[in-house]
Design a protein around this nucleic acid. Structure first.
Length: 180
DNA sequence: ACCCCGATCGTA
DNA sequence: ACGATCGGGGTT
């Protein structure tokens, strides 16, 4: 039996990510999340692509126009899930970052899950479909979650830095990170 | 109440 | 490169 992708990247013993990890500057968190082992229900793998959305001065951030019922979670404590619907059909998963009151989050855009074709989880909408994540998973504390776990990576992969995808404002920022 | 459009995806 | 698709966020 060969080692799975997630086992190869897992520290021994596995060390869960802490809330303070997510309280760091969002761009740093997004970069450091690349290669991080993830476990959700019977799925295990690593994070391969992320983007940072940083505060009310970031025009691409949902919270750029202030707090609304939807963006309220982004203003809350770090380490919580922010799930939103895009294009009327796709759910996307974020993890809230930075101090309470400062709206920011990391969008999880890609995963490599053990035993699942990469092409099925190489987009934010696609990975939520595979994991069966929807609005019911919004505003969950991912630091103390019975079914969702993130661990320190033993070693990360080489990381590409690029502009964010699919946005019309804030394209100057190099806040997308991809596992090479 | 309702209009409008998007942090996408799949097929060209 | 582009069109399909449509729920709900933001504003009326």
């Amino acid at each position: 039996m060969s080692a799975t992708i997630s086992e190869l990247h897992l520290s021994k013993p596995p060390i869960p990510l802490t809330r303070s990890f997510f309280e760091q500057p969002t761009v740093d968190v997004a970069r450091q999340l690349i290669g991080v082992p993830i476990q959700y229900r019977n799925f295990a793998g690593i994070i391969t692509e992320t983007e940072a959305y940083v505060g009310q001065d970031d025009p691409a951030c949902h919270a750029a126009r202030g707090m609304t019922p939807r963006t309220k979670v982004m203003f809350g404590p770090a380490g919580y899930s922010y799930i939103y619907l895009i294009y009327g059909m796709y759910w996307c998963l974020n993890i809230v970052t930075e101090v309470t009151g400062y709206p920011a989050a990391v969008l999880i855009r890609g995963l490599k899950l053990d035993g699942i074709e990469a092409k099925l989880t190489n987009g934010p909408g696609k990975l939520c479909k595979v994991l069966d994540l929807d609005s019911s998973f919004n505003n969950q504390d991912l630091i103390n979650h019975p079914e969702f776990k993130l661990y320190q990576a033993q070693r990360s992969c080489e990381i590409l830095t690029t502009p964010r995808i699919g946005i019309t404002k804030g394209q100057d920022k190099l806040w997308r990170f991809v596992c090479a």
